[in-house]
Amino acid sequence: MQAAISVSGVTKVYGAGAASIRVLDQVDFSARAGEVVFLMGPSGSGKTTLLSIMGCILRATSGSVKIRGQEVAQLPERELPRVRLAHIGFIFQGFNLFPALNVRENVALALDLKRIRGRQADQQAMELLERVGLAHKAKELPANLSGGQKQRVAIARALAGDPEIVLADEPTAALDGASGRAVLELLRELAHERGRAVVIVTHDSRALTYADRIVHIEDGKIEPAASLAVAV
């Protein structure tokens, strides 16, 4: 089966000359539709950098990035927002909700970017909120939600417009254990029941049971031995 997203031979060098640092070195990585892949590794190993490159918000120094088989690494800068919009949902450690918008509007804003507006947007936003169990909080401002609830709103927002790929950077780092599990549960359900490719960067060893596959990265290199498939 074709990978929903795959990178091969990706190298990322920050800076130039003597001051340059190689953060990713010939990285190969892929995620298929329907699977949850954990990307783990020590701090500074390049996890966020890799996730950013997969999400088309950062360009690799060299290598290939394919989204559903389509090469995107060579696309000009101005094409990238469109790729992100069409294929990728992001989930952030800090939630990044819009504090002035209520929960429903936060989701509707993501729909608005995809030109889904008006009544249709309201309806879809409510459906997405129902899916994360927060339809009853639709009119609340994010400030009135718990961390776990905020992250679930962020998930609903990431799902607006139905992206095939969901990329999450430390989605549970700011959450307590139970909230974190609820979030991971949702993300797993997303992969298994809705066929999304879900890539989660995490430090959280409590989360391991939610992974279909774990990829370890260290010093910008994938550790082959450790990247074993977890029994599904």
Partner: peptide, 16 residues
């Protein structure tokens, strides 16, 4: 600024 960054990451164009 973080919201603008988030919008950009989500795929909003500069025009938006």
């Amino acid at each position: 600024i973080r919201e603008y960054g988030t919008l950009k990451a989500m795929g909003a164009s500069n025009g938006y």
